[in-house]
Amino acid sequence: MRVVFKLFASLADFLPAGRRGNLVEIEADPGSTVGDLITRYQVPEKKAHLVLVNGHYIAPAGRATHVLQEGDEVAIWPPIAGG
């Protein structure tokens, strides 16, 4: 299935080839979880601070169990803040 994978700020370096800006479209196996993507692209766990799927927050404890669906958009940031 196709999933949009987005890594922002200092995490952009972990995006694979073929990226457009901060996103890349990838193939993922059905049943893949958010945690699987984080592992697959070797994003350091501590750096994967804020994880959104289709804009919804996924708590650290839920990453291993949140199963992705076709067309989902996964976005990850390191620790950041603003104002």
Binding site: S10, L50, W77, A81, G82
Partner: peptide, 13 residues
Amino acid sequence: GLPKYGTQVLMNV
């Protein structure tokens, strides 16, 4: 986070 990207990092978030 703040020194490197500033508050502007929130735009995409």
